[in-house]
């Protein structure tokens, strides 16, 4: 009987699991940094919607920022917290530190100033789970493909493996690219 029901219920022809594509270029004409974390797309970008504007009035930092500190220390920070808070949804934060920034070129990034964090927010603001922090392993690089000192527009790509030094867990970051206006 079960077999008959199974036959009657048909059969699969094709099945494909699909992850959404990463956006290219600047999203909403704001600073944008995107990558895949173990194949899962992570997108962080600034926008000028009313909600984001109101949030920024209360001191919340913009999700993506590039800061040139001193003469040649470049920090790029990106978090996808602008996504709607969904229970169980992982929040990602990435810091890329280029301590000797000279313009277009390839840079090695290293701990502790470069790191990647995953947090699973809870609905209670007072009972947040501490983030899990990962640091770049050897040969982690950022390639700056375009730098305009006048407009301060910075474009580039990155890809690396990061590790949780406590547990040894690895996360592979691939297809990374950014387009930011540096402060």
């Amino acid at each position: 009987m079960a077999l008959i029901l199974r036959i009657a219920a048909g059969c699969s022809l094709t099945t494909t699991e699909v992850e959404p594509e990463l956006p290219t270029g600047r999203v909403s004409d704001g600073n944008t940094l995107v990558y895949r974390s173990n194949g899962v797309p992570v997108v962080a970008h600034n926008d000028s919607s009313l909600g984001t504007f109101l949030t920024s009035l209360f001191g919340d930092n913009r999700p993506v920022a590039g800061n040139l500190i001193g003469s040649n220390e470049l920090i790029i920070r990106a978090r996808d917290s602008q996504n709607e808070a969904v229970g169980g949804q992982t929040r990602h934060e990435l810091h890329l530190a280029l301590p000797d920034f000279q313009g277009v070129g390839t840079y090695f990034i290293a701990s502790p100033y470069s790191y990647y964090q995953e947090t699973i927010p809870t609905k209670s603001r007072n009972n947040q789970t501490p983030p899990q922090t990962f640091y770049p392993t050897t040969a982690a690089t950022v390639e700056v493909t375009e730098w305009n000192p006048t407009t301060r527009q910075l474009r580039g790509t990155f890809g690396c493996t990061v590790a949780d030094t406590t547990t040894g867990q690895l996360v592979v970051l691939t297809d990374g690219h950014f387009d930011v206006i540096v402060n």
Binding site: T14, T15, E17, V18, E84
Partner: peptide, 25 residues
């Protein structure tokens, strides 16, 4: 759910992206 692209509109304009399974049967 994977990520959201926010538009510049005053109200709404968000586009949400999900992982999905494409199938034929």
């Amino acid at each position: 759910y994977r990520y959201t692209l926010r538009g510049n509109a005053l109200i709404g304009g968000d586009t949400h992206y999900y992982a999905y399974r494409r199938y034929q049967a």
